Simulated assay, not measured.
Amino acid sequence: MDRLHCNYLTAITWAALADGVALEAERQKLDRVATLLHLLLGAVEDALTYAAGVAPAR
């Protein structure tokens, strides 16, 4: 289940970075999603780093 939650967080992180930057409001929403999914501290930062370096498969 954790893997599914991490994949979901990464997918919505790609959406947040679609314009090339994650605004503070987007970051707060990502933090909230991570909390609701019971992900570890740092999950959002990991997702942002990963999403910034990897283009989503289309």
Results as ranks from 00 to 15, higher is better:
52 A>Q: 14
57 A>V: 14
8 Y>T: 13
39 L>H: 07
12 I>C: 07
10 T>R: 13
11 A>F: 09
23 L>P: 01
21 V>E: 15
36 L>V: 08
54 V>Q: 13
38 H>M: 07
33 V>M: 10
48 L>K: 04
53 G>Y: 05
37 L>A: 12
57 A>E: 15
9 L>W: 04
38 H>Q: 13
23 L>E: 15
42 G>C: 04
36 L>S: 04
33 V>S: 09
43 A>E: 12
47 A>W: 05
44 V>R: 03
28 Q>E: 14
42 G>H: 02
35 T>G: 03
8 Y>P: 02
11 A>I: 03
24 E>A: 12
50 Y>D: 11
51 A>S: 14
43 A>P: 02
21 V>K: 15
57 A>D: 08
44 V>A: 01
24 E>H: 02
5 H>Q: 10
3 R>L: 14
44 V>W: 03
6 C>I: 02
21 V>L: 02
27 R>A: 09
4 L>S: 07
21 V>T: 13
16 A>E: 07
47 A>Y: 10
34 A>L: 02
8 Y>A: 14
20 G>L: 08
57 A>L: 15
2 D>A: 08
22 A>V: 15
47 A>Q: 08
38 H>E: 14
31 D>T: 03
2 D>H: 06
55 A>Y: 05
6 C>E: 15
34 A>P: 06
51 A>D: 08
31 D>E: 14
32 R>I: 00
37 L>I: 02
1 M>D: 11
48 L>T: 03
19 D>L: 04
53 G>F: 02
16 A>Y: 08
19 D>G: 12
7 N>V: 09
1 M>Q: 05
34 A>M: 03
48 L>P: 02
5 H>P: 00
21 V>H: 12
44 V>M: 09
36 L>I: 01
10 T>Y: 08
11 A>P: 01
56 P>S: 04
42 G>K: 04
37 L>H: 05
40 L>A: 13
53 G>P: 00
52 A>Y: 10
10 T>C: 08
25 A>C: 01
17 L>N: 07
55 A>K: 09
